[in-house]
Simulated scan of single mutants.
Amino acid sequence: MRKTWVLLVSLLLVVSTASADIDNFRTAKQKLKEEVYFDQARGSEGTFYCGCDWRWVGESGGRVNRASCGYETRAQENRAERTEWEHVVPAWVMGHQRQCWQEGGRRNCRSSDPVFRVMEADPHNLVPTVGEANADRSNYQFGMIPGEPRVYGQCDFEVDFKERVVEPRPEVRGRIARTYFYIHDRYNLRMSRQQQQLMMAWHKEYPVTAWERERDARIARMVGHNNPFVTGEKSWRLGHKNSGAGLKGIAGGMQTKAGVEPEGSIIIRGNRNSKIYHLPVGCPSYDRISSHNIVKFVTEAEARAAGYRKAGNCR
C-alpha cells in the first residue's frame, strides 16, 4: 500500500509540474534547452531566422557556427557569434497593451504584472536565433520587403530599418503566423487587420511541418497545453474572437490599457505643433506629447510625406 501511495503522489507531482505555466524568462530558456531543443543544435533546422548550427554553452546559450549557414556579420560581431532567445511576438507588442508598460516599461511589467511574466516566458513564443538577427529584428513587425536587400551573407533575413519591417525566410513564415495567432488569442491581444491578413496568408502558404508538431508536443509536455493553431484545434479568421485562456486564474489578468492601438498598426506619434515624429522605442519623448497634439502614423515614410521629421533625441 505504501509503494502504491508513493507512486500516486509522484505521478500527481509530475502532472502538476507539467501543467503549470512558466513565469520566469530565465527558467523558460533553460527548460527549452533541456526539454525541447536538446537535439536541434546540429544537422536540423538550425537557428530560427538563418538555419545555422550551434553548440550549447552555459545554461541556455550557444555559440553559432556561421560557416554552416553562410552567415556574415552586419555590424555586431559579439552578438553574431552567439545564440539568443527571440520572442516571435516581441515583448513590446505584448507589454505595451498592459497598463504596467505605460508606468515603467518592461522592467516594471516584470516586477509588477504576473500576466506579463507568463507572456514573456511562454515557450511557444521563444526560438533560438543568431544574436545579431535578434537585435536587428528589435520589435519591428513582419512584412514583405521589395527586392532582396540581404546583408547577412546567405541568410535570407531582410530588415528595412527605416520602415521598421522584417521579412523572414520562407521556411519559418508559417510558424510565425501560428505563433502570432496563439499569443494574441491566449492573452487577448489586439492585432491590426493588415497584420492578420499577412499572417493568414503565411499560414495558408506554409503548412505545419513535422518539426513544428514535434516542438509543439515537447512544449506541451512542459506547460500542459499545445498551440491549438498548430494542432488544428483552432483556426484564425478576420475578426477572430480571442479566448483569453492564458489570463484565467492569474491576478490582474484583465488589466490591459484602454484605447491602445493594435499591434502592427499605428505606432508612430507626430507632434502637430513641432512637426516632429517619435518612435515607441528609442525616442524619449514618445509619451510626452500632449494628447491633443498627437498625430498618428503607420510608417516613418508616411510621417515624412506629411512634412514631419524624426526627433533629434531618438537613439
Rank of each mutant, 00 (worst) to 15 (best):
M119C: 06
Y206I: 09
R74S: 09
M94A: 13
E84Q: 11
V130Y: 10
F116Q: 03
A245D: 10
R117P: 01
R213H: 13
A303Q: 09
G249K: 07
H292G: 03
E45Q: 15
M144G: 07
R237Q: 13
Q194C: 04
H225W: 15
F142Q: 09
I183P: 00
N134L: 05
A251L: 12
R42K: 15
V208N: 11
L198F: 08
V115D: 02
M191R: 06
K248A: 11
D156I: 07
Q196I: 04
A306H: 06
R272Y: 03
P228R: 09
G153P: 12
L32V: 06
V64C: 08
P207R: 00
P146Y: 09
S60T: 02
D287R: 12
G312F: 01
G232Y: 12
D185K: 05
D160G: 09
L11G: 11
R272S: 13
T27S: 10
K162V: 08
Q196A: 10
V127E: 05
F142S: 07
V93G: 01
P228M: 11
Y140K: 13
M254T: 14
G46P: 09
Q195N: 02
N108W: 06
T129M: 03
S19F: 02
V6C: 04
A303D: 06
P280I: 04
L13E: 04
V130P: 06
H292M: 01
F48V: 06
V165T: 15
K162C: 00
A177Y: 05
T4M: 02
V165E: 15
A311T: 10
V223N: 08
D113T: 01
R79W: 07
N271Q: 11
G249D: 02
R82E: 10
G58C: 00
F297E: 07
Q197T: 15
C155R: 03
P207Q: 00
K234W: 05
E81Y: 00
A251R: 10
P114R: 01
R221G: 13
T17M: 14
P146C: 05
R218T: 14
V159S: 02
A305E: 14
N139Q: 10
R110D: 11
F142I: 08
R26Q: 12
G239P: 04
A306S: 11
K31W: 08
V88K: 02
M144V: 14
M144W: 12
T129W: 02
N188Q: 06
A251S: 13
V223E: 03
S68Y: 01
I266C: 14
T27L: 12
K241W: 00
K257I: 10
S44F: 08
S243H: 07
Y286I: 03
E205Y: 00
S291L: 04
A245F: 01
Y152D: 05
C52E: 09
F297H: 05
A258Q: 13
E167T: 07
T27E: 15
I266A: 12
T231A: 11
T47D: 07
P228G: 08
N78Y: 07
Q196T: 11
G249C: 04
R218N: 14
